[in-house]
């Protein structure tokens, strides 16, 4: 994937988040503070509008991360922003990112999110979508799959991971105050993570 492909991913994800903002906010209204879709829509829209030209993929990701931290407003801002910035740092100055490089970037994003938010798998957070996605990507890569197939495996795993949060009891964020009452609702952060990775799969499939 070159810089244009990463920029296309951010723009496409902004469209997906915008189209699904109502659902994400409704999920958040059930167990969170009811602003996730609106916040993330604002963040990704700002990122899509401020994409730099003529820079390598790593710089595209870091610029998008910075916009999202600045403009999102909720906890998802620092978390998604850190994910993108760590991914950008992992990619470095490469002009084109291959399957192994993208896998390393996704792993770096997961590490960054966990370092910042201190969430483990099973806490009913975005980690429950991102961690299985990274694992599925790495498994596909080890089997010799190309970039597009690896990303598709990651997106599928993220969607399943988001579905699996329905039965979990939250241990992070506002939802954790609800204890057992948080069970029965999908985590909005896991849902949006599945959306972001679906966006990546859409773009990678075209390239």
């Amino acid at each position: 994937m070159n810089a244009a492909a990463f920029a296309a991913w951010i723009r496409h994800t902004a469209e997906l988040v915008s189209a699904d903002a109502g659902r994400l906010t409704r999920l958040d209204a059930a167990i969170g503070d009811g602003d996730h879709g609106h916040n993330l829509d604002r963040g990704f829209r700002a990122a899509a509008e401020a994409l730099p030209d003529g820079v390598p993929p790593g710089k595209v990701l870091m610029a998008a991360g910075r916009s999202i931290v600045s403009r999102t407003g909720g906890a998802s801002g620092p978390l998604y922003g850190t994910a993108l910035r760590r991914a950008g740092k992992a990619v470095g100055d490469a002009g084109d990112v291959g399957a192994a490089g993208l896998g390393a970037a996704l792993r770096a994003a997961l590490d960054g999110v966990q370092e910042l938010g201190k969430a483990a798998e099973g806490d009913k957070t975005m980690v429950d979508a991102l961690a299985p996605a990274v694992a599925a990507y790495e498994a596909a890569l080890a089997d010799g799959s190309g970039l597009a197939d690896c990303v598709r495996a990651a997106a599928d795993a993220a969607a399943k991971g988001a579905d699996d949060t329905v039965l979990m009891q939250a241990r992070k964020g506002r939802a954790s105050y609800l204890g057992p009452r948080s069970v029965g609702h999908m985590d909005p952060g896991a849902a949006s993570t599945a959306l972001v990775l679906r966006g990546l799969a859409d773009v990678a499939g075209e390239g």
Binding site: V69, G73, A75, G77, P78, G81, L116, G173
Partner: peptide, 12 residues
């Protein structure tokens, strides 16, 4: 919540 995460992001 986000106040804490924003503080940690800034410190980075």
């Amino acid at each position: 919540g986000s106040s804490v995460l924003t503080a940690k992001t800034l410190i980075e």
